[in-house]
Structures are given as C-alpha cells and as structure tokens.
Design a protein around this nucleic acid. Sequence first.
DNA 1: GTCTATAAAGTGATAGAC
DNA 2: GTCTATCACTTTATAGAC
Lengths: 194, 194
Amino acid sequence: MKTDERIVQAMAELLRVQGYAATGVKQLTEAAGAPTGSIYHHFKGGKREIATAALRSTGAAYIQLLPLLLDPYDDLAEGVEAAFAQAAEDLENTGWANMCPVGTVTGEIADAEPALREVAAEVFASWVEEGTRYLTGRGLSPDDARAATYALLSALEGAFILARGQRSREPLLAAGHATAAYVATLRKPAPLTP
Amino acid sequence: MKTDERIVQAMAELLRVQGYAATGVKQLTEAAGAPTGSIYHHFKGGKREIATAALRSTGAAYIQLLPLLLDPYDDLAEGVEAAFAQAAEDLENTGWANMCPVGTVTGEIADAEPALREVAAEVFASWVEEGTRYLTGRGLSPDDARAATYALLSALEGAFILARGQRSREPLLAAGHATAAYVATLRKPAPLTP
DNA sequence: GTCTATAAAGTGATAGAC
DNA sequence: GTCTATCACTTTATAGAC
C-alpha cells in the first residue's frame, strides 16, 4: 500500500479507537510506519487534514455495508435486526473497539474543530442520501425511507456507544430489535391480489 | 457554590462540549475560576478523578429527566416523541453543544481510559435500571421495559451525534418518531372488560 | 520522497509561600 | 484552603541532510 494510504488508514483506525484529540502525530507515525517528514510531505495540513481524509474514506466504505447486509433478507425488518446483531458480534470480536470513527469524532470535536465537523456532516449527509435511495428501492415511501435511515443510523451510533461502554451486546441487540419493529410498521403488507 | 462543586460542574460542561482528551487542566482552572493548586488540593487524582466525578454527577442528574418528561403524557409513545423534540430544541438553543457528556466521553476514551470507561458503564447501568423501573410502572413487561430503555437511550445518544454534526433537528425528530412507533407496538391495548 | 533533529508551544502535575 | 512559579514531559510542526 502507498505511504499516503497507509497514513490515512492508520489515522482512521486510531480515530475509531481513541478519537481525535487523544491521537498524536508521533503515534500516527508508528502506526503507519512512516516518519514525521513523510507525514507532512504528503499532508501539509498535518493532523487535521489526515483526519478529514480518514473520515471521508471510512464514510465511503461504511455505507457500502448497507446493501451488503440487507440484500440477503426478503423481509427488511428481519434484515435490520440481523445487521445490528452482526455489528454486535464484530464489536465484541474486536475487543469492543470496532466503532464508527465518524460518530466518535463528531461527538468529541463538533465545536472545537469546525473543519472536521463539516466533513462529518458531509459524510452523514451521504449516508442519508444513500440509505434513503436504498430503502425507497425496498418499497418505502421517500419520506419514510429518509426518516428510517436517520432512525437506523442514530440507533446504530448510539448503541455502539452504550455497547462499548458496558462491553455488552445487549444495547445493540435491543436497538436492532426496536429499529426492526419500527421498520415493520412502515412496510405496507403485500397486496392480496397478485 | 463551593469550589470543588464548581470544578466538577465546569469539567462536566467542558466534557460535554469538547470531550476528555481535548480538555486541559489550564482550561479547567479558567472555567471553574479556581487556580491549579485548588484543583489538585480538592482532587489529588487530577484531571481523571474530576472527570469521573463529573460523569457520575451528570449521570445522576440526567436520569431524573425521564419521569419529568414522560409523566405528563398519558400515552407513552406520544411522550417519547415529545421528549426527543424537546431534546432537539435544547440542542439547537445551546448552539448545538448541549449533548450528553457521558456519551461523548465513552465514545472517545473507551479504550484509552479504563477508569473512565468503568464509570460510564456504571452510569449507563443506573440509567437502564431506572428506565426499566419507570417503564414497568407505565405498563410494560420487565423484559420489554429493559429493551425499550436500551433502545431509547441508544437512539437518543446516536441522534445527538448526528444532529450535532449536521446541526439539524431532523435526526432527533426521526429517532424520536421511530422510538415512539416501537414503544407503541409494546403497549398492550387496555382490556375491554373493566 | 524519506528520514532525523529540533524548534516552539502546550500538557498534567508538583512545591511551597501565603 | 488559595495561589504562583515551575518542572518534566509531550505536543504539532518545521528544517534540512540524504
């Protein structure tokens, strides 16, 4: 992998585990296997610029999971619940570290780092757009699809925090069950006349 | 207010706005109006001990809002949706800063600060206990009440993050609507025979 | 493009006068 | 119990050899 890509990926991982403020450039050099000079050669904006690149990169990667996780399920609500269960398993298997870096960083620096907050807002907006498109394709009305996307993302990000704090799958499973129950109220039953 | 209380309250406010790692002791002295010596006189454990006290303090305060917000509504689902709308208004009125410090800090330091993570876990557990008790009193089965509490807390914490990042009420309103719809599926209709 | 050395500022924490 | 001065260390970022 190219040096600049290694740097961005290492930053994304560090952001996910410990957030922005606690991540030092020295730590980044060790994680990326690139010395300080390389860091600032590739990213003259330093730590902040690397973090923005990391958020954009992971933002683009994460949204691809949506169809991958939900497509296999004919019943949308069932798929939602399974996706949360999958997230819970992933979280536990990574020692309760595998959280979304965008959520972590947004909660931490929304006021102190306007540039990062704007990037996070962009990423969230792209997720909502993509999620709305997908759920509309699954039979929801555009308004319902957009609201359901926001509800799903909120439940997921929040349950990540609770699960990580308590080191328990229970918050993710409960949030998944609740979101599925909500989605089920939106799905209109198939017409009786085929 | 006593000096040690001012210190804890100032820390809670700073945690809420900018998290743990970004909050410096010097900044805390200015916010609390107490010099460095006073800080370490009252809290020999320094920054970390003050943060734990702040999390416990705000944790105890926040859970009291649950009955205050929901008691006025005979219909539980209606109350849940109104509570999220209230949270959205509060968040906007404070310049998108008024988030839960426990959620902020948990997402940020779950791995790097084990002591703080444990305190956060305690606070979450107390919230779940209290929420389960309350919702049971509102007619839900104990299992449903516990799951609904987790779902409500997750949706709230996650929607706070999205709303703060996007500076929009929409995530909180959508999450509130979804959580209300879910709660409505749990409430058994009143028996027809009185 | 990579690497080392270092600058300049800030960090958490402590000592000790008052 | 309050306050100031300061230590020891780390931080982000830069300079310049290779």
